[in-house]
């Protein structure tokens, strides 16, 4: 069975939306964090791991998520696998940061 990320020739695909947006600071930062983690100097993560974590997303979520939301999901997944971060820690940090504002 074809998996959700394997899009070549996917039936029912429509016209291409050619509108573009400038990346927000948040998107750029997600990109930068991933790039740093994958850099030869750190190599905490491989691009192949990033891809694998994205491919393993639940198919409906894969189709609906924005590009960098997928990246962030993958960063969280791989960092959790490697014992660098846990989801609970991240959730806690989100609460802590948002309470400060």
């Amino acid at each position: 069975m074809t998996r959700v990320h394997d899009r070549g020739g996917w039936p029912g695909s429509g016209p291409i939306d050619k509108s573009e947006h400038d990346l927000s600071w948040w998107e750029k930062r997600t990109d930068a964090i991933a790039s740093l983690l994958m850099s030869p100097e750190k190599r905490v993560m491989r691009v192949d791991e990033l891809r694998r974590a994205i491919e393993d997303m639940e198919p409906a979520r894969y189709e609906q998520s924005r590009y960098y939301a997928k990246w962030l999901h993958a960063i969280e997944t791989i960092m959790a696998e490697k014992g660098v971060l846990t989801r609970e820690e991240i959730d806690r940090k989100v609460r802590e940061l948002s309470a400060r504002r």
């Binding site: 948040w26 930068a32 964090i33 983690l37 962030l72 971060l85 989100v94 940061l97």
Partner: peptide
């Protein structure tokens, strides 16, 4: 929510010494 999570992930990776704010 997405923005908070990026913030949180970055803050934690900095706290743990994996990356620095300057590197980002």
């Amino acid at each position: 929510e997405f923005e908070w999570r990026v913030d949180a992930v970055q803050a934690l990776l900095i706290e743990k010494g994996v990356i620095t704010a300057d590197e980002v």
